[in-house]
């Protein structure tokens, strides 16, 4: 593994460094000289599910992310750490194009998901977000019952049919839905707490339960990648450790990218860690042990040891 702050550094070997440029729309200065294949030789990792290359994000004139390149391996936990305002959430939102929803945001560069640029024209956002799910910093359940929350995605996608017309046509998928709800809630470690009140409003749950509900809701759509933005920031230690266990559990089946402010948390749960520092730069990206025990950059060492925030 190696740090990937700038284009030149990316040439050093390693499995998860940024992949090459794809098309001219995203091309930046120096990298134009190399062909895509040359880049691949160096940097394409077989198990990378997401590879970000030369990503720049602007909010109006504000340059929020600068030349970010990194590969995110499949079925692992990738932690994003860094001081407040350094662009972690912005980066996360780029991965499933939730930034499109912010009017002032402008994105340059490529994000490849399974080898396809998600920023190319004709990307089906609905499909993309089905596959790359997201859990937000603050729990945001719908003002509906727990069951309706979980089943919301599959119902809207037409994977599950409910309602009067469906029942008239004999296509009511109540059992499937029940199974799905139970399975998702179990995965999110919430089933035991709520199985007797699935029809109660989700807003009546505690903050930690709501957050796990949001995770369950995301799992019900069966995504491949789950993006989590400080999922435990508003929770007490018990709920936090539940979420941490959950993330480790999820990494067996899913690719998890998680933003956190908590160094211990990042050290405990993640396989690799990316350190962003103020100004929207990715300073170092490597295996978690390496980042925390023997980082290359002095700034990163200062940051993870708490000398610099």
């Amino acid at each position: 593994m190696t740090e990937t702050t700038t284009e030149t550094e990316e040439q050093s070997t390693g499995t998860s460094v940024g992949s090459g440029d794809t098309d001219t729309r995203t091309t930046k200065g120096e990298s134009e000289e190399r062909t895509r294949d040359e880049w691949r030789e160096y940097s394409f990792s077989e198990d990378a599910i997401l590879s970000v290359d030369d990503l720049n994000v602007y909010y109006g004139d504000d340059h929020a992310l600068k030349d970010i390149s990194m590969d995110i391996p499949e079925k692992s936990v990738t932690a994003l750490i860094g001081p407040s305002g350094c662009g972690k959430s912005t980066f996360l939102r780029c991965l499933n194009r939730m930034n499109d929803r912010i009017k002032s945001a402008r994105v340059e560069g490529t994000v490849e998901y399974n080898g396809e640029d998600v920023y190319q024209d004709g990307t089906n956002l609905v499909e993309l977000r089905k596959r790359i799910g997201m859990v937000f910093q603050a729990p945001n359940p719908f003002p509906k019952s727990i069951r309706d929350n979980i089943a919301y995605g599959p119902r809207k996608h037409g994977d599950i049919n409910r309602g009067f017309v469906a029942s008239l046509l004999g296509r009511d998928d109540k059992e499937e839905e029940d199974e799905l709800v139970e399975e998702s809630l179990r995965k999110a470690a919430l089933w035991d707490e709520v199985n007797d009140r699935l029809d109660d409003n989700a807003l009546g749950l505690s903050g930690g339960q709501q957050q796990r509900l949001c995770i369950a809701r995301c799992l019900a759509v069966n995504p491949e990648v789950i993006l989590m933005d400080e999922p435990a920031s508003a929770l007490d230690p018990v709920a936090t450790s539940k979420i941490e266990d959950l993330i480790e559990e999820l990494a067996k089946e899913y690719t998890v990218v998680v933003v956190t402010h908590n160094m211990q948390q990042a050290a405990r749960i993640s396989d690799q860690t990316a350190v962003f520092l103020t100004g929207g730069e990715l300073v170092e990206y490597d295996e978690t042990d390496k980042i925390f025990e023997n980082p290359e950059s002095q700034r990163v060492e200062d940051y993870v040891t708490g000398k610099f925030g």
Partner: peptide, 12 residues
């Protein structure tokens, strides 16, 4: 937040 949550679930 509701709109974001829904969009993030891939709902049109």
């Amino acid at each position: 937040e509701y709109r974001d949550a829904s969009a993030a679930l891939g709902v049109s």
